[in-house]
Design a protein around this nucleic acid. Structure first.
Lengths: 339, 339
DNA sequence: AATCTGAACGCAAACGCTTGCGCAACCAGG
DNA sequence: CCTGGTTGCGCAAGCGTTTGCGTTCAGATT
């Protein structure tokens, strides 16, 4: 019922080998014969079985992409961009969505990806054990988040520097009580929260502002978490006059909390985010933009390059540019009370 | 270098057949032997080659998911939910992101998915030709968007009814000039824009409001498009006092346009959206909620059910519940000018 | 004691493709 | 005319599983 390579071979009156070579553009087939074979294949609606061809050749023409949450804007956007590069190059992408600890554990113990992919792009930061499992696959590895990992091609941004510019902006406006809505590194093992936090600490220290641990609240990198965190900060005896949210999503949660408290932004409280979420412009959020789709594209390209040139070793880490974007959620402290 | 089934067979002192049966839980293997084999497999870090096993068995244990834009919230969320169901059932998911016309064309002509998947979940609406191509794969098909298609299991919502309740809400508030920010059906061939538009028309007719074609603007289902469309509407001689945006993303674009025009929402203009985007609550958008993730889960489940019971024919279409959500972007017309 | 019956396992043939090698046929150079 | 080198194609051996069928053997049945 399903048409195989021998069907088109018989239809053309040649051997299966010749059909295989003709269809994949290999040499050793006359142009005339190739044309006849291509025509016959099209006629019969023939598509080579990937299972069979990858079994025989050892190449799968498939890239594994593992992400923590496809649904979140950042990961979805990276995935979107990377997939386009892969599919344009003739690769399929196998998606692994490892949001829950169970899914994650299942993936790394059973490693269903083994022997199924030619490379993997990981948008989550594996812990050392998981990283070892990935390395054992023996295929090129890349990532777009968190810090450098041995064995991984990494494309990322200067999280620390970005956080610095966000916080410095607040300091420059005259803020002295600056809160931070952060996220734990733990469930995902990524270094982003740590780097961004360091940027915050650096600027405060540099500005001679004493650190108040109470001004740091965990927002879990979600909107709801950001709202919760902002609410906590507002409940302090001396609430901050400005907050740096480590992600735009948390910043939006913070904006919501502020609205609920009938506080005006930026007159009463300034908010600055990080990432330049697609909707940040809509809400006028001041933030630090990172080229999200471009990172996905670049990581995909580097992976493909490694597949083309297996000998050329792993590429150097690439750092994409970031950009501070001033919008409408930041102003000098208590600007609303000034005449 | 890579460990195969014969390696674990030799390690255990049995044949490859027995290893295969043992590892997949088939009968014909004593419990003691099975335990030994499982232990040896774990010891050696053996994972069956999917290529080989699907070549031999004809099953791929892979589901194809085709989406127009992974990066967009709606599709990302559906995909996220569906992937979880698939992977929990032991299936991998092969992702095809068909945003550009070229990618789409490439996909449907070459049909790389053929012989690679056991079922397909399509989040885009194929045109008749494309639908035929998918049907020719001979595997169960499902979709979560647009209308019914022969051969597809569909899970969706009552788009028309949802639009009706959104617009009726505006009418009930006293609005008479109600704009609509819509989207073309064309590039994606989906019926959602048509259905939602019909709901709008129905309510206006029912309320005895004369239709003004100028009040309908195309927003392309994007934030920028929504902003553009709202700007167009505001440029009319008689701008609307309220607008129904066919998606929350377009509604957010509209909100942005209104802010730029220094118009207050809802005092000057009311806005109602559709979908209940994850950030709609943040901006206080009145909207019609649909269970996005639940639709993805349900579609995935129905697909798996068909794989388990191939004889049981295609399931009936399922319609998921929607819910009108009143927030803060709607009010009676000119409510700001009242004392 | 001879026969029958399962259970437990091995054999070997697929599955559909790729690829190294061999073998004609052909052409140019000596 | 004979070499040596191309070019174009077929042969057949894999690639790592699955699975129908055959074999062995212990225990139950007559």
């Amino acid at each position: 019922m399903t048409v195989s390579i021998t069907d088109v071979a018989e239809a053309t009156g040649v051997s299966a080998s010749t059909v295989s070579r003709a269809l994949r553009g290999r040499s050793g087939v006359s142009e005339e014969m190739r044309a006849r074979i291509v025509a016959a294949a099209a006629e019969l609606g023939y598509t080579a079985s990937r299972s069979a061809s990858s079994l025989a050749s050892g190449r799968t023409y498939t890239i594994g992409v593992v992400v923590p949450y496809v649904g979140r804007w950042f990961f979805g956007t990276v995935l979107d961009a990377a997939e386009k590069v892969f599919s344009a190059a003739g690769y399929d992408v196998l998606l692994y969505n490892l949001g829950s600890p169970e899914a994650r554990k299942r993936f790394f113990t059973k490693l269903p990806i083994r022997k199924r992919v030619d490379a993997v792009l990981s948008l989550l930061i594996p812990d050392p054990e998981e990283a070892a499992a990935l390395c054992s696959l023996g295929v090129p590895l890349a990532t777009t988040v968190g810090g450098a990992r041995p064995g991984f091609t990494v494309v990322g941004i200067d999280d620390r520097g970005g956080a610095e510019s966000a916080v410095r902006h607040l300091v420059n406006l005259g803020h002295r009580r600056i809160g931070m809505i952060s996220g734990a590194s733990e469930p995902l093992h990524w270094t982003t929260p740590l780097d961004r936090r360091q940027g915050y600490l650096d600027v405060l220290a540099d500005a001679g502002i004493e650190l108040d641990p109470a001004l740091e609240a965990d927002g879990g990198y979600t909107v709801e978490g950001g709202e919760q965190a902002m609410t906590e900060l507002l409940a302090l005896r001396h609430p901050p006059t400005a907050v740096f949210a480590q992600s735009d999503e948390m910043a939006m949660g913070a904006l919501r909390a502020l609205r609920r408290h009938r506080l005006r932004v930026p007159e009463d409280v300034s908010v600055v985010g990080f990432d330049d979420h697609e909707l940040s412009e809509v809400v006028g959020l001041t933030t630090v933009a990172q080229p999200v789709a471009a990172q996905g594209r670049e990581a995909a390209r580097l992976l493909l390059a490694q597949l083309d040139e297996p000998d050329a070793g792993a590429p150097q880490p690439v750092e994409m540019p970031i950009r501070f974007i001033l919008r409408e959620t930041t102003a000098p402290p208590h600007s609303g009370r000034q005449p």
